[in-house]
Amino acid sequence: MKKGFLGIDVGSVSTNIVVLGTDNKLIKKLYLRTNGQPIDAIQNGLKKIEENLEVEIMGVGTTGSARELAGVIVGADVVKNEITAHAVAGSHLVPGVKTILEIGGQDSKIIILRDGIVVDFAMNTVCAAGTGSFLDQQASRLELAIEKFGELALESDNPVRIAGRCSVFAESDMIHKQQLGHSLEDIIAGLSQALVRNYLNNVGQGKEILEPIIFQGGVAANQGIKAAFEGELDTEVIVPKYYNVMGAFGSALLAKEAVQENDESNFNGFNVSDFDYTASSFECQQCPNHCEIINIHQEGKLVARWGFKCSKGENNQVQSSGK
């Protein structure tokens, strides 16, 4: 049987799984909606990816905002933040890349690389304007399939000006323009430009954006946003082939590296999708911090817990009753 590595990226909006061969070539990929249920998404994803898969898994890596949770469930060899995972995948697929623009469901980031090494990065902090969820929201308000959003933007001859700084104001601006009679295409194209402006001013502030530039993350599927980036930066922007699973791709590459160091994988096997995982939470009452504690149970047995500000939880000094 062929050997390979598994990369899992559990983000706010999508859960992506990738199987890489030992030659770093992609064998199989999967893009699923997380739908606010990361445990289900991981289990479903594993089940789906296992179908007809003739690969022995030598190592597994997790990333994304639910990387710790995913790591516990699958038995990860490496649990790595998404910035590093995205950079690793970007520089592997587009050698020599100097700038990575990444827009995901809830966050957007810019990664600056030189000679294959990350030298600078930034991530949106206090504002989610311009991320995938906002586009999703607008698409559903306009009763458009999100996949059509970008195509439609390209059909615009005369994009309208939309305020992009805050998603709430962007929305009211869009509604004003729509009620004045501007065409849908022009409004969507205007929105794309506004988001790109916001991204470059906010996340990209003070960064040296040099070519080659790649654009990845779920939003990179949007032709309108890609075109707006190209217009604003006045240069070509590459959307890599596996743009929507780059985190998982990077995570699989990192797993390969980790296993080389550790010799052995911690992978729990695909049967974890048959186990019953439940998460329970409680508010610790030992001090006024009232930390929200999450317990992860496998078949009723506590396997992980996090959320504490102090060390009491790690030592299991606190019971679920909070007393």
């Binding site: 790595k80 933040n81 998404e82 910035i83 590093t84 990350v118 030298v119 990065f121 991530m123 902090t125």
Partner: peptide, 16 residues
């Protein structure tokens, strides 16, 4: 969010 940024920053420094 902060932990993600700190970890990525530490990775960056390590590679440097």
């Amino acid at each position: 969010g902060v932990i993600t940024r700190l970890e990525a920053f530490i990775d960056l420094l390590k590679r440097n």
